[in-house]
Write a protein that binds this DNA or RNA. Structure first.
Lengths: 289, 289
DNA sequence: TTCTGCTATCTCTAAATAAGATAGCTATTA
DNA sequence: TAATAGCTATCTTATTTAGAGATAGCAGAA
């Protein structure tokens, strides 16, 4: 059974004529006859009475319902892929905690407002595990620190963060090696790229081992920093947003260590679902790319 | 877009391999490649990642939902026509009042019990208007008096009725012409074949004009006969069923006038919907044909 | 690197499809 | 009853498409 045949059949049912159906679908009458005949053979039942204007038989009326359902679903699927304003289905995103907290809310809100038919899920985690998720096909796109250099993946730079050193007391310069050696550092759990920058900062001072406390959430971490538990390293914009809630102070870091870019990484654009393609559109608009 | 392609695509999604999908659907791998490729071209998106075992892209996952819906509806339609135990959809019947009252209830009940997915509608009316309904395509099958002799219609003899003369007083023979001439006859509205038999009876006695009251329902008519309003002519079995409720008496009529057959008339069997075909099956069983 | 298992591509053959021409059927009208 | 107008069925031909096999190419594993 072919969708083409069902389309012709529906046209016959609606117009009551093989010729009109042929005209409507830009073909010739003999083809309509052939398609209908084939359907009839396949189903083992006569679908139309051919006397004095075509009328559906009871078998034809039984088929018509199914034909209409099939064609409606078919058209819906085509429209989804063809119309650049459509999006539906599922969209599974992943993001670093900090990006999620600070950058994504307006973007997700705008996307949801435009495409309410998309079921979105968002997982947060460190860069390494997000990339893993992406490669395992468990996420459609992830916000991570740094690009993925692989010809099957596509990295779009979306945000540039400047990392700063955060402490509970004011600083006039980056603390000395002696100071850092005895200090405690607070960081996200293993795999977070910001944590790697902490280690880079310490290495630049000749320090290889240091006490690091791991946290799962931004609030917990900042709260502990404010309480004087130790230092941390976070994007300036994140700190600006939370400074009023915590008694914390910042110090700029050398740009080699401070500058870190957030990328939206996906498989090749050719494989994007309409929902994902529209999300990238939204990213361009909302992030001003 | 072809259903065949979607079926292959679904198999690819499930097996994770073009070769396995080909085997599952009894074809060769190169055909799978071709079909998937065609789908991808048609939708303008890559549907599967081809590296290290096939995995769906986000576009592929978006399509899969539609593919499954389409194939499910398709299979449902095929099953309806192929499995002789299935029936669904609509069934529009027509019947004479007397047949409906007396013969159909057990048949309709049995049919509904076996095929609850069929939406049945039953219109009652005189033979002539039922035949009209059937020919206009407004009914799928009708119970009428007498066969329809037309090569596009199919008449199945289902019941044989013996008509009797009904009166409020006992009779020892068919009333004389003088008696009938002054009598009133009660009959269904114009077009009912039983009424034609009344006229035939009177004509056999040389009477051409007679007073006839028209009724729409059996109960009203029998009630009036019992009240001594006049005569009527009805199937013996109908009378037997109602005799206990009314004070009425019957007299046999000459067989040329008395015997009348009820037929189930439909379009050609080849055009029967599954619902109609199953109804005819039920008729055979329940009416003991 | 080499091997293994899979997919893409190419080619040939068979089958299906589209379109046109024509015959045949149905209901209408004179 | 016969002629007519408007359809649909059938037949034919050219073109397209699908199926199957052989082979090349690619990616991941050892």
């Amino acid at each position: 059974m072919q969708l083409k045949s069902l389309r012709l059949f529906k046209a016959v049912a609606e117009t009551g004529s093989f010729m009109a159906a042929a005209k409507q679908l830009h073909t010739v009458q003999s083809n309509v006859t052939t398609h209908i005949k084939k359907l009839e053979e396949e189903l083992g039942a006569q679908l139309v009475h051919r006397a004095g204007g075509v009328r559906l038989t009871s078998a034809g009326r039984a088929l018509l319902g199914y034909a209409e359902r099939l064609l409606a679903v078919h058209d819906e699927a085509l429209a989804l892929f063809k119309n650049a304003e459509n999006a539906a289905g599922q969209l599974r995103l992943g993001s670093m905690e900090t990006t999620m907290a600070l950058r994504l809310p307006p973007i997700l809100a705008a996307y949801h407002a435009n495409f309410p038919d998309v079921d979105m899920t968002l997982a947060t985690g460190p860069t390494a595990s997000l990339i893993e998720k992406l490669m395992a096909g468990q996420a459609d796109g992830v916000f991570v620190a740094g690009a993925v250099d692989h010809h099957r993946y596509h990295s779009l730079k979306v945000f540039s963060e400047q990392l700063v050193l955060v402490s509970s007391t004011p600083m006039t310069s980056v603390p000395s090696a002696e100071e850092l050696l005895t200090a405690t550092f607070l960081a996200f759990r293993q795999g977070c790229s910001y944590r790697q920058r902490i280690e880079l900062l310490l290495a630049s001072q000749g320090i290889n081992a240091v006490r690091v406390f791991e946290f799962g959430t931004l609030d917990a971490m900042l709260g502990c920093v404010a309480a004087g538990m130790g230092y941390t390293v976070l994007p300036r914009i994140t700190i600006e947003a939370h400074r009023h809630r915590f008694g914390i102070h910042t110090m700029e870091l050398p740009s080699a260590i401070a500058n870190i870019d957030t990328y939206f990484v996906t498989p090749e654009p050719a494989s994007w679902s309409p929902a994902l393609a529209r999300f990238v559109d939204t990213l361009h608009q909302e992030a001003g790319l």
